[in-house]
Design a protein around this nucleic acid. Structure first.
Lengths: 210, 210
DNA sequence: TCGATGAGTTATAGCTTCTAACCAACGCGA
DNA sequence: TCGCGTTGGTTAGAAGCTATAACTCATCGA
């Protein structure tokens, strides 16, 4: 497992490329990411980057992978010491506000042709698992809904998690509702409307858990 | 108001350009929209399109404007003969599924530098008004929340709509929650998870209005 | 020390947006 | 009916992008 100096150099350059790429994405969006500009910013010329990434798509795929990984880590950290949906939700918002374009790389507009790298599904299910664990700690809410019946027969996505259907449904609604407020806030659809997005987020969280 | 033949021809070419652009966007996403390809598809060569649009950005702005207009019209049509939030919600989903990329042009990932044309705010507030009208027909729900107090002091965005704060809050939650489920569905985050997105949407609608 | 590996370079093809210059056709007024 | 201006369309070209090919040179290992 001892790394040669070459490998260390290579890894270091790769991470610097990704850092510059993140800067560009944060200021101009993922669609404006330019390998040329990244290379020029690093003092080397264009095609040198192709030693490190097969192309623009592979670089973006790598960034998406890292974004998923980062979110999964933030979730895992927020689930300590005890799983708590509210803590998870606030961690999600903090993670999103720290770098909105990173959030959009995960949950934003998909490019019709593009397929995310296959290993992100593993990370996505890791995220879902921590969310399910947290939702399982909540007191069972309300009567059984028709959707619970449907989900009981279609719980393959829960990856064998032993939670009852009501918990699965709760996790799903946590996901969709928090994404709803967050993505609209990050996309700037609340600017100009006077209210405080943080309060709306907390209100939605209250309605979800209270 | 009588149009000269020149103006009619000009308007026709403009709409054909937009139609081709929509086709491209539907199949490859807005980031892949190429003026050159549109022109070639119409049998004319590249720079000819600049007689009709100042550039790629203006064309996209025009498409965004049309998308807003289309959504506002769909909403207005769904509010006949009587305002009904459930009808509005289902119209929204149908409108979104008919052309997901059109939905993302309105509610998708924003480009940091880009600013939407100023007149879409008028259309957006028209959409919000029909939503508020529909939500005002619902029986008042639940106790007064802390967020109601906040929104009562920050209701500038309601554009003078006379609805009480509880209705404003309801309209906001309709917006964010429906967008939450819809955008995740359209982005393909539910593919692989076995359940039926339509049922999840209906379940969320039930929770919202029931 | 020599040879292979690999990082970085320039050159080039092909794509894009967009400007400039030019041409031709259309329509309107005299 | 005859010009002449407006306007649509063209080609040429600049600047930028992705990506490949070919080449140079340093570094690392045997």
């Amino acid at each position: 497992m001892t790394e040669t100096p070459r490998e260390r150099y290579r890894a270091q350059v790769r991470t610097e490329i990704k850092e510059r790429a993140w800067e560009q994405i944060a200021t101009a969006g993922a669609s404006a990411l330019s390998l040329n500009a990244v290379a020029k910013q690093m003092g080397m010329s264009g095609p040198a980057l192709y030693r490190y990434f097969a192309g623009r798509d592979e670089l973006i795929s790598e960034l998406i992978r890292d974004a998923y990984r980062s979110l999964a880590d933030a979730f895992r950290a927020a689930a300590e010491p005890a799983p708590d949906p509210a803590a998870l939700a606030r961690a999600l918002r903090a993670w999103a506000l720290a770098d909105p374009q990173r959030y959009f790389l995960v949950y934003g507009t998909p490019v019709p042709g593009y397929h995310a790298p296959s290993d992100v599904t593993g990370i996505a299910s890791e995220i879902m698992t921590t969310l399910l664990d947290a939702c399982a700690t909540l007191p069972p809410a309300g009567p059984r809904t028709p959707f619970d019946a449907h989900i009981e027969d279609h719980r393959l996505w829960a990856a064998g998690h032993p939670a009852p259907p009501a918990v699965l449904r709760r996790a799903l609604t946590c996901w969709t509702r928090l994404h709803g407020v967050l993505s609209l806030e990050l996309a700037g659809h609340f600017t100009g409307m006077e209210f405080d997005p943080a309060l709306l987020f907390e209100a939605e969280l209250d309605a979800l858990l209270g």
